[in-house]
Nucleic acid binder design. Structure first.
Lengths: 202, 202
DNA sequence: CGTGTATTTTGACACTGTCAAGATAGCTTG
DNA sequence: CAAGCTATCTTGACAGTGTCAAAATACACG
């Protein structure tokens, strides 16, 4: 149980992560400060520093949890492959991003990744989730569902970039709003499909 | 025009923008504070507030300048269209993003766009740059260089998302590093081309 | 029981953005 | 030229922030 380590607070680390997630969802990264978080957990300002080296460290831990939930979305159950299936996948990805915008910001935001001290655990989780996607593409190819000339790595990189860019677009609303999501997703799926399917080969 | 300490700085607004760009390039957004900026410009802490309502307002102004330089990159001179041309275009885009990473972060980062008070001027500049890209695609179609069934808006949205996602990937180094840029760009260009060219139509 | 160690607190420091009020310079009038 | 007005800049202050060092507490174990 959680009584494995019964200290003063019980399990402060867990509480901090949960409370941080709430704070993040309600007020955005801007509203998430170490001090407020500590107050929220009913603990003094510097208590969190015994569970997280840094604010950065805390944020990495949250992002890490985001990645674990994320992998579930990436799963395309069934070996069958079609444009409809790709459409569904694209929609799932974008829905996750939009519905967990604060998490998504943390997971893929430059804030964490550009700084030198990004957690090894986070790196591992992030790379794992990409490899998961890559392996899916590879397996399609092995099953002959995909044109043989395709480079799975490059394809995965580019299509993931598209998904990521689409998510950023919609979350930030730079060029797009959520109304246009449907056709937007379909166009992406169509492009992904064209690039995959053998029949389009010259 | 001496740099002696005179009460009225010649053109403080301009100086602030320039100094901010330097500070941004050297130390990232993290190192850019209003107070440091003021000090850098040889002026008191609150002087900048007579030229920019906010820190946000300042950042918007910088991003705005970024967009103006950005449009130059988006220009595909000549009406000719080929996969090579698209490759070149993709490379140009990514080079701009990588070589002006701090600007790019500001221009497209969630930090500015998610907050309610993003400058109208910035919005205008940003939307203008997208429309520029969109118009290019439209003109290709009008010149019959592109399959007629293509929806220029959707295509522009998705391909721009791809470019944006690729840029973010490389800048942040989440899934990619700069070494892989060449093949990465080529794969994207290939995908863009497939989606454009009439011969792949069923 | 006592001791050590894991956990939390208090105090402090150097920052940050930004407001209100006062000081100065330069342009615009008479 | 002088007077005044306005744009510009400064000083002072306040409420925050992340984080370190040292002191205080509570638990686990011998």
């Amino acid at each position: 149980m959680s009584s494995k380590t019964r200290y003063h607070h019980g399990d402060l680390r867990r509480t901090l992560l949960d409370e941080a997630a709430l704070l993040l969802r309600d007020e955005g990264e801007h509203g998430l400060s170490m001090r407020r978080l500590a107050a929220r957990a009913g603990v003094s300002r510097t208590a969190p520093y015994h569970h997280f080296k840094d604010k950065q460290d805390l944020l990495c831990a949250i992002a890490e949890e985001g990645f674990r939930r994320f992998v579930g979305v990436l799963t395309l159950d069934g070996a069958e492959l079609s444009e409809q299936r790709l459409q569904k996948f694209v929609r799932h990805y974008l829905e996750f991003a939009v519905n967990n915008a604060e998490y998504y910001d943390l997971m893929f935001g430059s804030h964490l990744w550009k700084s030198a001290d990004v957690t090894e655990a986070l790196k591992a989780e992030a790379h794992g989730s990409f490899r998961f996607y890559l392996n899916q593409v590879k397996s399609w190819q092995q099953h002959g569902l995909v044109r043989s000339g395709l480079d799975p790595l490059r394809y995965s990189q580019v299509t993931w970039s598209t998904l990521h860019g689409m998510s950023r677009s919609i979350i930030d609303g730079v060029y797009l709003d959520t109304d246009a999501m449907g056709p937007f997703c379909d166009e992406a799926a169509r492009m992904f499909w064209r690039e995959l399917s053998p029949e389009t080969q010259a």
